Simulated assay, not measured.
Amino acid sequence: MPNNIKEQIQTDLQQVKETGQLRTERIREIVKAAVSQVASEFKAGSTEIRTLVKDAVSAVIENLQDKGTEFQEDVTASIEGALEGVNNKRHMAIVETQAEVKRLQAQLDSEEEQLQQEVDGILVEIEETGKEKTADTKTVIESAVNNVKNSEEVALLKKRYAQLQAQLAIVRANLAARYGGRSEEVKDYLDEAKNWYEQARPQAEAVAIQVEQKRSQLENKLSEAGTTIAKKERQVKQTLRELLLATADLFKEKEPAEQQKDHVHK
């Protein structure tokens, strides 16, 4: 089949054209299936792989170049399908690795929770010892314990960690959608992003109106992305791209006043 991939793709395209069901998504599937089958015979990154991709895309161009305005979308779909077919095995390995990362993340979260519970227990015991002291000493101990409990550094670290995890999950959703991930895989990443985002979200009363509006927009985009998974491939990718940009805009830090002044002067 390696020498006949163009013929195979052209035959498949012609069959679909005759049924009147030739759509961008179908073109992508045809090219992906053909390339995936042949690519398994070659070593990753080899010259044969590159030739295979070029032949697959050329088959679509030669067969559909008379479609006019839809031609560019068809060529894009053929390129995406070819790349997905080539990287199918690698993507499956990535999925397995991500599953292991999730397992380790859950284990890490559990261990951190246990550590936090142990620390909280120690702080409670320290407070108990203060009850037998003088009023002033008791006040000092309670104040010291509260300072440890309400450490701004700890709160900020937890918030930033959750933000980064949310962004990372959205990045993975984008990569999965772009390089052959199943709809269930993309949705899992979006659910993961939503969970982390909720952990990073501060109380509404502590957030400026403008920031809260951006958060509301992000929530809407998360919901929108979840509901478009089963729709057109192009629409899903566009929604995920918008979600990625919205998240980056929401979580980015404001520049220090001095740096802003420097930009003004420049």
Results as ranks from 00 to 15, higher is better:
residue 20 G to I: 03
residue 180 G to E: 10
residue 21 Q to Y: 15
residue 115 L to K: 15
residue 173 A to Q: 00
residue 32 K to P: 00
residue 151 S to Q: 01
residue 134 T to M: 04
residue 54 K to L: 15
residue 189 Y to C: 02
residue 111 E to W: 13
residue 198 E to S: 12
residue 4 N to M: 09
residue 205 E to M: 02
residue 42 F to R: 09
residue 212 E to C: 06
residue 112 E to R: 13
residue 164 L to G: 05
residue 177 A to S: 10
residue 210 Q to L: 07
residue 154 V to T: 15
residue 161 Y to D: 09
residue 71 F to S: 04
residue 92 M to S: 13
residue 78 S to W: 00
residue 43 K to I: 05
residue 244 L to M: 07
residue 235 Q to I: 09
residue 241 R to T: 12
residue 34 A to K: 10
residue 64 L to V: 02
residue 265 H to Q: 12
residue 210 Q to V: 08
residue 112 E to N: 15
residue 72 Q to G: 09
residue 9 I to R: 04
residue 172 R to W: 08
residue 222 L to F: 08
residue 195 N to S: 13
residue 156 L to H: 04
residue 185 E to Q: 11
residue 157 L to M: 13
residue 125 E to H: 05
residue 16 V to E: 11
residue 178 R to T: 11
residue 195 N to Y: 07
residue 100 E to V: 13
residue 163 Q to Y: 00
residue 173 A to H: 01
residue 43 K to F: 01
residue 190 L to P: 03
residue 190 L to A: 05
residue 219 E to F: 02
residue 227 T to W: 10
residue 56 A to S: 15
residue 99 A to C: 06
residue 45 G to L: 02
residue 155 A to Q: 13
residue 203 Q to T: 01
residue 27 I to W: 06
residue 125 E to V: 04
residue 52 L to P: 03
residue 181 G to N: 09
residue 11 T to G: 13
residue 151 S to R: 01
residue 175 L to T: 11
residue 8 Q to F: 08
residue 260 Q to Y: 07
residue 34 A to L: 04
residue 74 D to S: 07
residue 109 D to K: 05
residue 182 R to E: 14
residue 43 K to T: 12
residue 217 Q to D: 12
residue 209 I to V: 13
residue 120 D to L: 11
residue 137 T to R: 11
residue 240 L to G: 01
residue 48 E to F: 01
residue 98 Q to D: 15
residue 242 E to R: 03
residue 136 D to T: 10
residue 29 E to Q: 12
residue 38 V to F: 02
residue 197 Y to S: 05
residue 195 N to T: 14
residue 198 E to F: 09
residue 41 E to T: 10
residue 249 D to N: 04
residue 75 V to Q: 02
residue 61 I to T: 06
residue 91 H to K: 12
residue 102 K to R: 15
residue 139 T to R: 13
residue 264 V to R: 11
residue 153 E to V: 10
residue 197 Y to N: 04
residue 25 E to W: 00
residue 32 K to Q: 13
residue 53 V to Y: 00
residue 203 Q to S: 08
residue 196 W to Y: 15
residue 161 Y to M: 10
residue 84 E to S: 08
residue 180 G to T: 05
residue 148 V to D: 00
residue 101 V to N: 07
residue 1 M to T: 09
residue 157 L to V: 04
residue 141 I to G: 08
residue 28 R to M: 04
residue 217 Q to V: 09
residue 26 R to N: 03
residue 233 E to H: 11
residue 261 K to I: 15
residue 30 I to W: 00
residue 24 T to W: 07
residue 34 A to E: 00
residue 33 A to S: 09
residue 130 G to S: 00
residue 122 I to D: 02
residue 212 E to D: 13
residue 49 I to N: 09
residue 156 L to R: 08
residue 109 D to M: 05
residue 114 Q to F: 08
residue 254 K to R: 10
residue 236 V to R: 15
residue 116 Q to K: 14
residue 251 F to C: 03
residue 9 I to Q: 02
residue 88 N to R: 14
residue 93 A to M: 14
residue 27 I to F: 04
residue 52 L to H: 04
residue 227 T to L: 14
residue 219 E to V: 02
residue 161 Y to I: 08
residue 206 A to C: 08
residue 124 V to H: 14
residue 27 I to Y: 00
residue 167 Q to W: 03
residue 164 L to H: 06
residue 132 E to K: 14
residue 174 N to C: 13
residue 131 K to F: 08
residue 223 S to H: 09
residue 139 T to D: 10
residue 254 K to P: 08
residue 207 V to A: 01
residue 204 A to T: 00
residue 22 L to R: 01
residue 125 E to L: 00
residue 240 L to I: 02
residue 246 A to C: 06
